[in-house]
Design a protein around this nucleic acid. Structure first.
Lengths: 220, 220
DNA sequence: ACACTAATATGAGATATCTCATATTTTACG
DNA sequence: CGTAAAATATGAGATATCTCATATTAGTGT
């Protein structure tokens, strides 16, 4: 992790204004933090010193189960708070967050701001909204995992994560996100290829029959 | 749904004080609502008029998927907010809540209080805490569902829901809660019986070998 | 007491998913 | 540039879970 200073600092602060989330002047407290791909933003079980507000890049929220399996709970995209649960509830076990691409965050030091934040209705209202969205996402995910086999969930995931009809997520991450074994993910990708819905091209897959892919995804 | 009045109203207000959750006087707005077993507290897709605070009884939070499968997201026990997400988003309620036993709630009319609530830091801080707990519960559930077969999750569920070592939850609800088919739930109950870990007695099951049940549950 | 619905129960066969083994390819790094 | 680690790939066999069919039993309302 690296803090930006000088004109780089200024440019990110200007580019991503967050004053409207607070009713007290937040800028004096702000830092700008960068993380390299693969770098841990939070280690599991650690005590975060900053509340981060993700403004650029992509990260993954994960945790490791007792049996060693890793679950990716969510891919985080801007704008997103990170470390808010620990701000509220300092004793909870912290999940891990790892940068996937280069990540840029606005950082608010917990120690200096906790009291101010927890008595700021503007901030708390935004945080409630953010948390209720999170709840919605997780409850949807629980429902989908229970109700649909991988082929439907994968179809939906390919559609949201493909860029110009080209899907190139890492299998190792996707199987942890969708909650299935690596082997089974490849089975189902092969099945979709077999039916000419997608076609393997080098590092990724091209969507060849978007209609049928959408039909598979639609139920979810 | 039925609102209590008179001395019954007074007794519940006294028995479950919630003034400390707010920084403005809440009592003038409060009603006391009761629901009978099986009654819907929120229908899926309705527009809630009250923010409820569950103080007695048990309810289930569920939703119906596009393919008709029902998922029970959680069993709600006191104290719990219900309808808080709709207060924040003013969208229609996407989930349903149904009373399992008789349920008693303190009810805060949304229309009259929304503005006050959303600018009350005390209330919002409690709500954030509540939502972050919810997040924690759901993320744990996602992880467990992905990582463990039913026998482990069921063992854990039997332990938390048994009363004096006697388990008597309704299978129809439990399978929707644990995200498996009714048939499979019975398979696994039979398997636990087969191994003399539990024993069927009339309407429920007696825990016969708590150690082994705990061992199965422990990993979760 | 009767009829209807919900809940419980069980079997048989299909399928979704997992584990483990192993090989190849790509990527990271000194 | 060479080596180790990570990611991709594929097969074979096991198991967890689902669907559907069908009975029986308990609960509910009139």
């Amino acid at each position: 992790m690296h803090f930006l200073t000088g004109s780089l600092f200024d440019s990110y602060i200007e580019k991503h204004p967050i004053q409207s989330l607070f009713s007290f002047p937040i800028t004096p407290y702000l830092k700008v933090a960068t993380f390299e791909p693969g770098e841990f933003i939070f280690q599991e079980g650690s005590f975060p010193e900053y509340l981060y507000y993700l403004v650029e890049g992509k990260a993954k929220l994960f945790f490791t189960q007792k049996n060693g399996k890793v679950s990716i709970l969510n891919f985080l995209h801007p704008p997103t708070f990170m470390g808010e649960i620990e701000l509220l509830n300092s004793e909870r076990y912290t999940k891990g967050i790892q940068a996937v691409t280069q990540v840029i965050c606005l950082a608010i030091p917990t120690k200096a701001c906790k009291e101010k934040l927890l008595s700021d209705a503007t901030f708390l209202r935004h945080l409630c909204l953010f948390l209720s969205n999170k709840t919605f996402i997780y409850t949807s995910k629980i429902g989908q995992t229970n109700a649909y086999p991988l082929i439907n969930r994968l179809a939906a995931f390919i559609l949201v994560s493909a860029d110009h009809d080209f899907y190139k997520e890492k299998h190792t991450e996707v199987c942890e996100y969708l909650g299935v074994s690596y082997r089974h993910l490849l089975h189902v990708l092969a099945q979709l290829s077999e039916e000419n819905i997608i076609e393997k091209q080098g590092r990724g897959y091209l969507i060849r029959d978007k209609d049928r892919l959408q039909a598979l995804a639609k139920e979810v």
